[in-house]
Design a protein around this nucleic acid. Structure first.
Length: 611
RNA sequence: GCCGGCGUAGCUCAGUGGUAGAGCCCUCGAUUCGUAAUCGAGCGGUCACGGGUUCGAAUCCCGUCGCCGGCUCCA
């Protein structure tokens, strides 16, 4: 069974031709990347020089190369407009035409400080002050422009292809990324060594825009937002709800197959529960204000864990019944600052595919292993096939900032690492990145456009079992503290659907398509036959619509194509007489007439839920 | 939350101080048609919301809400 069909609209873009940065890695590749970074860094300098020529009062902050280009931050007297960007681009081209040599110079620290102080470049001064004492201070000069910079750079501005860069947008950015500090203006740009590569990159950006889930959500009638409801609160339309329901059904089935039990919990709980769990202390900023019920304060849940813990505590637990794996599609509400909301990817009310595993220490390894297997299986079923893993550990220098016994931390971290090693996973260790309550494994997934997304996360929790005094009776007839693992695979239904829509470009594979088949009668004389066809297909479990509108067949085909329906069945007099359907696939085109039963047989496999 | 931009019909967008427009969608009529747009008519707007300036505001000013690009933060 092929989770992703061979289908022009849902296939990943061909990354080879465009020179994508994420094509097969290797040392050569890395060298090329370093070269491209140098090139882009020099383009950033040329841009800064152009900005200084046009806005002499501009103060320079920093301007590094980034994944697909570069940026440079400036302090300016007025906001930049799109017209300014054009003028800056034009000035950049003339700087390139001047073919200025780019010269590196190492300065004594005091001299460098003096230079930038005289130039009024206070951000540069701050950077110099923060350089370690033993590090040399280097500057790069091209023409009248000098910038503090470690380099390296191109030898001359003329090495830049004047047709192979583009300034994209301007945005606000805090100095040093600190929201308490100055707001600067950041100009983003992209640059390549050839015009063709730039054009290929711009084409990828357009493709990403075409796949934007917010746009597809409207075009395909999947979901909407309403000012009258409020920001960050999703309205799932029938088609979007169908996809979500299918994912949830699949999710439930897979979890049941793997020994999970499904639970449900309420949306609100008394403030006391959130006090016990520590949420009021650590998480109150993300929680909505409470409501008074019969004189008692209740709060809307931002997480599901406390409920699962109370279920655990509803009676004495035996070592014999562990592990307990309790999963819930739990809808939570969290306050998000207004500026961060983004379609389905960042909302204020969302449904997590949450689960908590309570187990004995000796079961930990198998449980973690099981979660990783489950996560990879689920994601592969949705056509994701590239992942990166990260192991977030405690900071051994600062063990006092973590909840729980350091000995248990060491054990748990060793288990996580051993599992990743044994599986032969490549992963990155992030020391000091653990949550205060436990270490974790994060899995990042890459979509059809090779963009990375935070996916499954497996987190230890040394905090809640203590706070709620969770125990189980051991073989020794003494109470023991269970291990608790919090994990999510899809993250949240909203965010996952957003990713999935973009991954498939809206062309869902057959098993997820909200409408799998559209029957298109050629004239109104064929409507009755079309409805008969629909009835038979529905009986077989397919999701089928009939387009009975008084329109020409080309119009109906076009509509169905735009709706990205996998199969169109054209039925006219010929089909009606022969009891057939003329099959058209959304990407393969006209497949010719078949009997209805043949058609059913040919699609039943791809229509079936994986697993 | 912060910086900047934006908000006109369900959607995409014209309209810059003087009677609110187009295409698509939808409805109706004609048409009965063979694989990406048949023709015609009609419906549809508190110009996001509130306040102000003005003889007069979609247009200028202030505030609120929402959206977009980022920053910061996160499932």
């Amino acid at each position: 069974m092929e989770p992703r069909e061979a289908d022009g609209t849902s296939r990943p873009l061909d990354q080879g031709a465009g020179g994508s940065r994420l094509s097969p890695a290797g040392e050569e590749r890395e060298e090329e990347m370093a070269e491209l970074d140098t090139y882009r860094h020099s383009v950033a300098h040329v841009m800064a020089q152009a900005v200084k020529r046009l806005f002499p009062e501009a103060r320079l902050a920093i301007g590094p190369p980034i994944a697909d280009g570069f940026y440079y931050d400036f302090e300016l007297e007025r906001p930049l407009t799109p017209e300014d960007l054009e003028a800056i681009e034009a000035e950049m081209r003339s700087i390139i035409a001047e073919d200025l040599p780019i010269e590196r110079r190492v300065l004594p620290r005091a001299e460098a400080e003096e230079f930038f102080r005289r130039a009024g470049e206070r951000y540069k001064l701050e950077l110099i002050e923060e350089l370690p004492e033993d590090e040399e201070v280097s500057c790069y000069t091209q023409g009248e422009f000098t910038d503090l910079c470690a380099g390296p750079h191109l030898a001359r501005t003329g090495e830049i292809d004047p047709e192979a860069f583009k300034l994209l947008n301007v945005a606000g950015a805090y100095w040093r990324g600190d929201e308490r500090r100055e707001m600067l203006q950041r100009i983003y740009g992209t640059a390549f060594e050839t015009k063709e590569q730039l054009e290929a990159h711009l084409e990828r950006l357009e493709e990403a825009a075409r796949r934007d889930h917010r746009r597809l959500g409207r075009e395909l009638d999947l979901f909407s937002f309403s000012d009258e409801v409020g920001a960050g609160l999703v309205l799932w339309h029938p088609k979007g709800a169908t996809v979500r329901m299918l994912i949830e059904d699949f999710w439930r089935r897979v979890h049941l197959q793997r020994g999970y039990d499904i639970v449900y919990s309420p949306h609100i709980a008394r403030a006391g529960l959130w006090k016990t769990s520590g949420h009021l202390q650590w998480y109150r900023d993300s929680m909505y204000s409470g409501m008074n019920i019969d004189g008692v304060e209740y709060l809307v849940k931002p997480m599901n864990c406390p409920f699962h813990i109370l279920m655990y505590k509803s009676r004495t637990r035996s070592y014999r019944e562990l592990p307990l794996r309790w999963a819930e599609l739990g809808t939570v509400y969290r306050y998000e600052r207004s500026g961060v909301l983004h379609g389905l990817l960042r909302v204020r009310g969302f449904t997590q595919d949450d689960a908590h595993i309570f187990c004995r220490p000796d079961q930990l390894e198998a449980e973690i292993e099981g979660v990783i297997d489950l996560a990879l299986f689920l994601l592969k079923s949705f056509g994701f096939d590239r992942f990166e893993m990260e192991l977030s550990l405690s900071d051994p220098e600062n063990m006092d900032k973590y909840a729980g016994d350091p000995e248990r931390w060491r054990e748990a971290e060793a288990v996580l690492e051993a599992i990743l090693e044994r599986r032969g996973e490549t992963y990155k260790k992030a020391v000091g990145e653990a949550a205060f309550y436990g270490p974790k494994i994060d899995i990042k997934l890459f979509d059809a456009l090779d963009r990375g997304w935070q996916g499954p996360t497996i987190q230890f929790d040394f905090n809640l079992p203590e706070r709620f005094d969770l125990t189980y009776m051991g073989e020794d007839n003494l109470p023991h503290r269970p291990y608790m693992v919090h994990r999510t695979v899809l993250g949240a239904m909203e965010r996952f659907l957003g990713n999935l829509i973009e991954h498939y470009g809206g062309a869902f594979p057959m098993w997820l398509a909200p409408v799998q088949v559209k029957v298109l009668p050629v004239t109104e004389r064929n409507i009755a036959y079309a409805e008969k066809v629909q009835g038979r297909l529905r009986e077989a479990g397919l999701r089928v619509e009939v387009d009975a509108r008084d329109e020409k067949i080309g119009y109906k085909v076009r509509q169905a194509q735009l709706e990205k329906v996998p199969y169109m069945l054209v039925v006219g007099n010929r089909e009606e007489q022969a009891s057939t359907v003329a099959v058209r696939h959304r990407s393969q085109g006209d497949l010719g007439p078949r009997s209805l039963e043949d058609f059913l047989a040919s699609v039943s496999e791809e229509a079936r839920m994986p697993g």
